[in-house]
Nucleic acid binder design. Structure first.
Lengths: 367, 367
DNA sequence: GCGCAATTGGCAAGCGCTTTCCCAAACAAG
DNA sequence: CTTGTTTGGGAAAGCGCTTGCCAATTGCGC
């Protein structure tokens, strides 16, 4: 005793299924007003719910848009998800969500699942990886995606094209100016900080991390400074925490022992984390070792995660309009020709450097 | 030139569609190994992707599970979503996500959409509301849900049954012991804090908020204390911030002017917020007015949001295993009979009071 | 009043898949 | 060698819906 069907409604209304279909779902041809009313009444009295699967089957589209993230509980991704969701709603579509822990292998199965469900478009939010161990999975992923595209799917990617993808015309990549913004952040920081810089990066091959690192180094160079040392660790809070622990030792050690070296430079480095959560993790670790921010070390993050904005000391970071990115990726040039898309990409909400307490050089006292 | 179909594969393999279906999708009858191989090869060479919509249509189930949240970017909901997602994956299903901003009206359309897509089950994560203005929408929502249930759908709800629902046997509600835990929190707080208590609540009629408030009052009573004043505000950070602003004035005013009143009691209240983000908002406001936590006022939250754990002063709160709740709601007694479910509900991971820095009464100095 | 176009409802053919029957072949038993 | 029993594959009937096409009705100009 499943839901009632269109034919049942039609029978009750005394019309053919064709007519019922035409009145209940936006068809070009609308039957006469009196018949329409009868059908609508019948539908209501049977509490008819159209079967979207059947509709999708015949129209060969599903009204679904698939979103792939590493972890939906990660605030970075959930912000993007909100944007994608909003875009979906605007288009009258529903959101299919898949999480992959960042592994291309799982992304691959997610794409396949979306393809099976005939998702109208799919958005990949997670950072691309070119680590050697992901090479095979990446190849499979791009194959799967290309196939999906060839069958008429559209895919939106954030930040980086999918490595190895070939059906370029189907891909809509939202440009995330990681490198530029990172450089800009460093530029501003270099003006107020005269000590050393130190980069807290994710694993090599993670494109987002690599971009930001490159930006940091470029900014340093532009400011006439030498490249900073890069500490590699996990791209999450735990990674930041671990690195923070060892950094704390170095900073404390450096301050204590190396009297010959310019005091200010070694004793109070500026840590450039490649994202906010790593920065937060590092701060937690530094604090647990008795260090204070910004007294003993400056630190900056990246992303400007909303939930973290009340963190003290307020974290200097780069604000990214993640929600807009999500929406853009989901819209994927839906509204307008490709020329418009180019323009759109140009006017992408671009992010903004936010200098806050965690990199304040004046006040040396307080937490 | 859409994706290739089963019949195409069958033709290529030189078998009937029936056979192809049998080998490519787990059927009871598995064709001979040599034929199976041929079919599989054909499928691979055509890069065949089964059409889940068609499959769903004939099997009249979709492999979809629908999740309804207020806002996916809210860490509370994204934690739950992670759990639901995990459960979905375990069952080999996909997650359909709908956000509603907490309005029953939008929840209603979400349920309808899920029903149309023939979601196998749906999970409602957002708090139920019994505010008078939501009465109609609630009725529609429960009607929609009941209909969905009658057609064989299962629904999992967190915390509270849907108001007005009647098809009880289809609902699986995971019990969130808000009241008990709130009481427990207050109990522990009452042991270390001798001043007044003050409740920072959400709008009246929001069940989660009301439960927690009731728990707070009950805990107070159990400790032999008078009921606390309740300040009503929005259930989010902004609400907490606003309330914090006015509270700050009162606290400052109280400390300055009312010398007759026992100093400790008025000057250093303990604020019991009904969730973490409100607490954080309040802290931000209090700080902006020059107050310090826990020096000038104690404060506790509820939920133990992960991203907020690095917040300083560490927020006393009630840890809720949100992810488990999500998983449980999604599993919905899938594994086992209803008797098991009862047991399961009993052994629900129950949450835990976390006393941290923000309610520390000893140290009166520092931030 | 007639012919024409325009309108309106119904028929039926699918969309891509599963599954129930049915049938032929293959085997065991008598 | 006949009969009963498996066995493995195919034919076909849908799942619930849309839509191209046709037939019937209507409206209109002349």
């Amino acid at each position: 005793m499943s839901a009632s069907t269109l034919s049942e409604v039609a029978r009750l209304a005394g019309v053919s299924p064709a007519t019922a279909s035409r009145v209940l779902n936006g068809s070009a041809r609308t039957p006469g007003p009196e018949i329409a009313e009868r059908v609508r009444q019948a539908a209501a009295s049977l509490s008819y719910v159209p079967n979207a699967q059947a509709q999708g089957l015949v129209k060969s589209k599903s009204g679904l848009i698939g979103l792939i993230v590493h972890d939906i509980a990660d605030p970075y991704f959930s912000a993007i998800a909100r944007g994608v969701q909003a875009a979906a709603r605007e288009q009258g579509k529903m959101l299919l969500l898949a999480t992959t822990n960042g592994t291309p292998a799982e992304e691959c199965v997610a794409v396949a699942a979306f393809a099976a469900r005939r998702a109208d478009s799919i958005v990949i939010a997670g950072s691309r990886s070119i680590r050697p161990e992901d090479k095979n999975s990446n190849a499979e992923l791009s194959a799967e995606l290309d196939r999906y595209c060839r069958n008429g799917g559209r895919v939106g990617v954030m930040g980086h094209p999918v490595v190895g993808a070939s059906a370029h015309e189907c891909y809509h990549v939202v440009n995330v100016p990681n490198e530029e913004l990172a450089a800009e952040l460093v530029g501003k920081l270099a003006k107020i900080h005269s000590g050393t810089f130190l980069i807290l990066g994710g694993p090599e091959g993670l494109l987002t991390s690599d971009d930001r690192i490159r930006g940091y180094q470029r900014g340093l160079k532009a400011a006439g400074l030498p490249p900073a040392e890069i500490v590699r660790t996990g791209f999450d809070r735990a990674g930041g925490y671990d690195a923070g622990l060892s950094l704390a030792k170095r900073i404390l050690g450096g301050a204590r022992h190396r009297h010959g070296v310019p005091q200010g430079a070694e004793a109070r480095p500026c840590i450039l984390a490649v994202n906010d959560v790593m920065a937060i993790g590092a701060v937690a670790a530094l604090r647990s070792e008795g260090l204070r921010i910004p007294r003993d070390t400056l630190i900056a993050g990246f992303d400007d995660i909303e939930t973290l904005r009340d963190f003290r000391p307020a974290l200097s970071t780069v604000h990214l309009p993640l929600e807009d990115f999500g929406r853009l990726a989901a819209l994927g040039g839906t509204s307008g020709g490709s020329a418009d898309n180019e323009a759109e990409a140009g006017t992408t909400p671009a992010g903004r450097v936010m200098l806050r307490r965690s990199t304040e050089t004046r006040a040396l006292s307080q937490t």
